[in-house]
């Protein structure tokens, strides 16, 4: 019979979570991530370390992408993982994939950072906002590696007009209100609102259609 031997793997994981971390040869499956989350509910710190190891490069990438500042992104990632630990019990595998659930937490925290009083946003950042937008999606060669939900979304985004796509992408990554979007894009408020409304309607129909297939 094996005696408990939990310390070894925990420290191995902990030492791996440094700057030398390499990308997983086999990214963890949805089921594996969901299992780790359910172990976090039982306060399994080893599982939490494994979850961090598996998901933090992706999630930090999202935080960097949205905040556009590494120091902010680090704060966002910290706060997000604290939340993930405390709320792991409310994750429901019937409703969403683990990565989607965690990404939504990170994105919401990141947007909260951006929504702090606007004085902290410098004019360079304002300018960087627009220049960063052109080609958001992965190239066609990357599509195969994407999760099914991301592939569906990507495919459906292709059905939108350029204006719809651009306004939705800007809003998604920067949490801009309709008014701020209109200002950023230099278009009338009503026009931007219509782009977004029609774009979202179209996305919904397209994604839900693909999922039913």
């Amino acid at each position: 019979m094996n005696l408990p031997n939990d310390v070894n793997s925990a420290t191995q994981i902990a030492t791996k979570t440094g700057v030398n971390q390499t990308t997983h040869a086999n990214p963890p499956t949805k089921e594996q991530l969901a299992a780790l989350l359910s172990r976090c509910v039982l306060h399994d710190q080893k599982a939490f370390a494994a979850l961090y190891e598996a998901s933090s490069p992706k999630l930090f990438g999202v935080a960097v992408r949205i905040t556009r500042r590494r120091d902010w992104a680090e704060e966002v990632l910290q706060e997000s993982f604290v939340k993930i630990w405390h709320h792991a019990g409310s994750y429901d595998s019937d409703k969403s994939a683990p990565m989607t659930w965690m990404t939504a937490i990170v994105r919401n925290r990141a947007l909260d950072w951006l929504r702090r009083p606007r004085e902290v946003r410098t004019s360079e950042e304002q300018e960087a906002l627009l220049s960063a937008i052109p080609d958001e999606g992965p190239g066609p060669e990357d599509l195969a590696s994407l999760a099914a939900d991301a592939r569906n979304l990507h495919e459906c985004m292709e059905h939108l007009s350029d204006d719809q796509k651009r306004s939705i992408t800007l809003a998604f990554f920067h949490g801009l209100s309709h008014g701020e979007l209109a200002e950023e894009m230099g278009k009338p408020l009503g026009t931007v609102k219509t782009w977004i409304r029609r774009g979202l309607d179209r996305l919904k129909g397209c994604i839900d259609g693909l999922e039913r297939k």
Binding site: T17, Q21, Y52, P57, G61, A104, K204
Partner: peptide
């Protein structure tokens, strides 16, 4: 529906002090 849009963000390994 919308969160997968974030998957276009490239992976970035966070510095160790975050953990």
């Amino acid at each position: 529906r919308l969160t997968p849009m974030a998957s276009s963000a490239p992976e970035v390994v966070p510095p160790r002090h975050v953990w």
